[in-house]
């Protein structure tokens, strides 16, 4: 059980809450204490729109423990409109029609489960953009 570990990231996992660097303006997701661009440590919260496009993807047939239930699933690097890449699964889509450049939007879904009585971990996935 890793309840606190997942709980403390709820703002990021459910709402794509990242940061904007007060020094160089870089938008950061996931949030960091030190801006990787200018190495300064002052940031303000910044909520990402959740819109982006598929930068790369892979259909995964050999899942790690905790993810067997949904395999095969499609992992993607999603390029957010605001700049950063995020690693996430695609959902609500036929795995075989995914392509680079496909427009997607963030939704909240179950990420993993630890057995029948274990914790469920929720977070962001991306689906084809509805409008």
């Amino acid at each position: 059980m890793e309840i606190s570990r997942h709980w403390r990231l709820q703002q990021q996992r459910y709402g794509l809450l990242g940061e904007k660097c007060n020094h160089c303006g870089e938008k950061l997701f996931p949030p960091r204490d030190v801006c990787p661009e200018c190495t300064q440590d002052s940031q303000e919260l910044y909520r990402f729109s959740g819109k982006g496009e598929v930068y790369s993807y892979s259909k995964v047939f050999d899942p790690p423990a905790g993810y067997e239930g949904t395999a095969p699933y499609t992992m993607a690097l999603v390029k957010l409109e605001e700049g950063p890449l995020v690693t996430a699964q695609l959902t609500d889509v036929d795995n075989d029609i995914v392509e680079i450049g496909m427009l997607v939007e963030m939704v909240t879904r179950k990420l993993r489960e630890d057995g029948n009585r274990g914790m469920l971990v929720y977070g962001y996935k991306f689906r084809p953009r509805l409008k």
């Binding site: 997942h6 990231l9 996931p30 930068y55 790369s56 993807y57 892979s58 995964v60 050999d62 899942p63 790690p64 905790g66 993810y67 949904t70 699933y73 992992m75 993607a76 690097l77 995020v86 690693t87 996430a88 699964q89 680079i100 990420l111 993993r112 971990v121 977070g123």
Partner: peptide, 24 residues
């Protein structure tokens, strides 16, 4: 762990994401 692993990545999947983009 917090930002890749939790999403269900595997070592081959990471390589695959790079390979797909390289091919493209």
């Amino acid at each position: 762990s917090d930002w890749e692993l939790v999403q269900g990545v595997t070592a081959p999947a990471m390589a695959a994401l790079i390979m797909r983009r390289y091919m493209h």
